[in-house]
């Protein structure tokens, strides 16, 4: 058994190995592209217009108003013929930003930028943030005693021992359906669950299982709900941490959403979490 000190020394020595010099071709490629790339500048305060001849401005404005009024009146006359021409342009839909940055999120709808087999968007209220590309974190962070967060992923299988990931995944592996995964969670000897209960998210049916992490869970011994190689790399790190795990069938593909909180999380944050879940829009990817 290695000590922590041994592991640190070995890892540090190992990290010293390998390349430390960027190839010239990389720098050349960058410097070749720079002249063609415009820098993104901060927005400045609205520019002040210089003083203009106000008489000319008034005449111009009056003329413009008269022309617009005449055109509108002509179109509204009974029996008048539409001037035709191309239809008025419709507003282009604003692209939905992706949850792929880190930090505080302006309120709005975001697309979950994880490697998911379906498109997922959620409406995020003020005060929430994102950590990586598939996590939405509440106003008080994601740590105990009052944090809250939502994560989106897929789960291919569960671990034999959630507190001992090195023991590997259960065999035979969990099947592909919602029922398969929910049964595996509920029947797992190391999982303490309540439910399942039927749910619907954006019209897609699924089930929710509530899990409270057992005594013995800590940052030193996290409880793995899944593992990286199993599709999630998802874990909890506080005994008593509560997970609502939603498993949804989106056009034949399984989506897993874990909405977690702590006993000290406020009712307002829980309501906001529920609102985010209720706002989810799911679109199958053919």
């Amino acid at each position: 058994m290695s000590t922590d000190h041994d592991v640190t020394r070995i890892v540090r020595s190992w990290l010293e190995e390998g390349t430390t010099v960027v190839p010239d071709r990389v720098l050349d490629a960058v410097l070749d592209q720079v002249p063609a790339i415009h820098q993104r500048r901060l927005r400045w305060p609205a520019r002040r217009f210089p003083t203009v001849n106000t008489t000319a401005l008034r005449i111009g404005l009056i003329a413009a108003v008269l022309i617009v009024a005449a055109l509108v009146g002509w179109r509204l006359l009974p029996g008048s013929i539409s001037p035709g021409g191309p239809p008025a342009p419709t507003a282009k839909p604003t692209p939905i930003p992706k949850l792929n940055s880190q930090g505080l999120l302006p309120a709005g709808r975001y697309q979950v930028d994880a490697t998911l087999p379906m498109k997922v968007t959620v409406a995020v209220p003020d005060g929430w943030s994102t950590d990586t590309n598939w996590v939405v974190i509440g106003p008080n962070g994601n740590q105990a005693p009052n944090g809250i967060a939502i994560r989106f992923y897929t789960v291919k299988n569960l671990l034999v021992h959630p507190l001992t990931p090195s023991a590997g995944a259960i065999s035979p592996p969990v099947g592909p359906s919602v029922d398969d995964l929910v049964k595996a969670m509920v029947n797992h000897r190391d999982w303490t669950t309540t439910g399942p209960s039927p749910i619907t998210i954006d019209g897609y049916v699924g089930q929710v299982v509530h899990v409270t992490l057992p005594a013995g869970t800590s940052a030193a011994t996290p409880f793995y709900l899944s593992g990286d190689e199993l599709g999630g790399d998802v874990y909890g790190w506080v005994a008593g941490q509560v997970f609502d795990i939603y498993v949804v069938d989106v056009g034949g593909k399984r989506l897993v959403i874990d909405a977690f909180h702590y006993p000290g999380t406020s009712a307002a944050d829980l309501a906001a979490q529920q609102a985010i879940l209720d706002s989810a829009q799911l679109t199958p990817i053919p």
């Binding site: 390349t19 960027v22 990389v26 720098l27 720079v34 790339i37 415009h38 993104r40 500048r41 901060l42």
Partner: peptide
């Protein structure tokens, strides 16, 4: 790593004013 370095340097140039 080369691709990531190249992209990071281009992003540095592009976003440096911010």
């Amino acid at each position: 790593a080369e691709d990531a370095t190249q992209q990071a340097l281009l992003n540095v140039w592009q976003d440096l004013p911010q």
